[in-house]
């Protein structure tokens, strides 16, 4: 069963499977511990500040390394660790390129250190050329990020990052979670499929997490130079962006690609496929699949283009213009015969032989063109017949090809 079509093969809104976008992907970390051996202290017990245990981080040995690969491996125990003693305003960043555009559903970080006092999450929609914040976390939003600690998200600000003090607490001292759901609390989330603003809001090609500030050494009960940011797991949940036109995202040599339905094409099903340009492309919604519609070319062309002007004139029903009409046809739908040809009334317009030559007489007719429907050529004075091949009554053939029939005296 194809989720993009119902039992009667009518097109319907469909979305691809939910994916763990971070699993196995490479994360770029700006400051990983152990370039020179360092002592890093963390806690064994999530609630006991005296359960401190210190380890050496040294990248020269695998056993004492805590690389960014540990963020996205399948092992929930391994932990990436930042360099020790990072002090505000210096920060540490984790950057995760996703490889294509996705619609984010959630992002979560599981810590092996205490959660940061301040951190921010950014996204890029252009493969890392520009970044926009999507969430700030801080016990001191105003002081660190210049933002108020957020309350309710209004419709006017539902596409803006807010700052929260949730998930910034010192405890649990280890194993704490910071999770972000880009649609949570947004007024238009219930009608996400109809909200271009939120569709844009959840779209990302890359994710960046910026750790801005650690809890103070005093709060942590240890010396600052042994404190660090530590993350066991970075998870990013989302779906391929396929605009409601695909239920499957296929792994191709160039990366994940939507398996487009509804006669759409492109890596995100973001355009109509060739010859399906009778209506403008639109994202599908649950109430209307907005499938692309084939142009009506009466089997005489397999190419067409879309005209918004014609579409508007037709009352938003049809805007396709056939191009390259064959079999001596012409017109927007290849629905009449081109000049010099006439319709064969015995054949349907879809027939390859629906248009036949006028066969106007080279001397008796004024031109090679004839009436499309009747086939009547335009005759010179004194000439008659469908193809202008005879002299009319009262006329006789002359020797002049310019005036082939003259009146009988």
């Amino acid at each position: 069963e194809d989720p993009c079509y119902d039992a009667k093969q009518r097109p319907r809104y469909c979305i691809p499977d939910f994916l763990d976008l971070a699993l196995g992907r490479e994360v770029q970390a700006s400051g990983t511990c152990g370039k020179v051996p360092q002592k890093l202290c963390s806690y064994q017990d999530p609630t006991n500040i005296t359960s401190r245990k210190c380890l050496i981080c040294d990248q020269s040995r695998a056993k004492t390394s805590y690389p960014p690969a540990y963020l996205t491996d399948a092992d929930a125990q391994t932990c990436w660790k930042s360099e020790a003693g990072v002090k505000f305003p210096k920060n540490v960043t984790l950057t995760l390129p996703l490889g294509r555009r996705f619609e984010l559903v959630y992002l979560s970080l599981r810590f092996c250190s205490p959660r940061p006092q301040s951190m921010a999450v950014y996204k890029s929609m252009d493969h890392g050329r520009s970044w926009v914040p999507i969430q700030y976390y801080s016990t001191q939003c105003r002081r660190v990020y210049g933002l108020p600690t957020s309350g309710t998200i209004t419709k006017a600000m539902e596409h803006e990052a807010s700052c929260t003090d949730y998930q910034t607490g010192l405890k649990p001292l280890t194993g704490g979670l910071v999770a972000f759901m880009p649609l949570a609390g947004r007024p238009s989330a219930r009608r996400f499929e109809y909200s271009p603003v939120l569709q844009d809001w959840v779209t990302a090609t890359d994710i960046r997490v910026v750790f801005s500030r650690l809890h103070t050494g005093q709060e942590l009960g240890m010396r600052r130079k042994t404190t660090f940011y530590g993350v066991t797991e970075l998870q990013v949940g989302g779906r391929c962006k396929c605009n409601g036109h695909a239920s499957h995202c296929a792994s191709m040599p160039e990366g994940l690609t939507c398996d487009c339905r509804h006669h759409t094409a492109g890596p995100e099903c973001d355009r109509c496929k060739a010859f399906y340009h009778d209506r403008p492309w639109q994202r599908a919604t649950p109430s209307n699949s907005h499938e692309c519609v084939a142009c009506e070319c009466n089997l005489h062309s397999h190419r067409c283009r879309f005209s918004m002007e014609l579409y508007a004139l037709s009352g938003r029903r049809s805007g396709g213009i056939c191009t390259g009409c064959r079999h001596n046809t012409a017109g927007r739908h290849c629905h009449y015969c081109k000049q010099g040809y006439k319709r064969d009334p015995g054949k349907p317009i879809t027939s390859r032989r629906s248009c036949k030559p006028c066969q106007c007489h080279p001397v008796g007719a004024i031109s090679a063109m004839c009436n499309q429907t009747t086939g009547q050529c335009q005759c010179k004075i004194g000439v008659t017949g469908l193809t202008c091949n005879r002299c009319a009554l009262g006329f006789q053939q002359s020797r002049s090809a310019y005036m082939p029939c003259v009146r009988i005296r």
Binding site: G385, S400, A401
Partner: peptide, 23 residues
């Protein structure tokens, strides 16, 4: 009455060579 079709051989093509069909 049906008139006979134009006889192409009767025309003097001297000045209308461009109208003369290829034989």
């Amino acid at each position: 009455d049906v008139m006979p079709t134009l006889d192409m051989t009767l025309f003097d093509w001297t000045d209308y060579e461009d109208l003369k069909p290829e034989s």
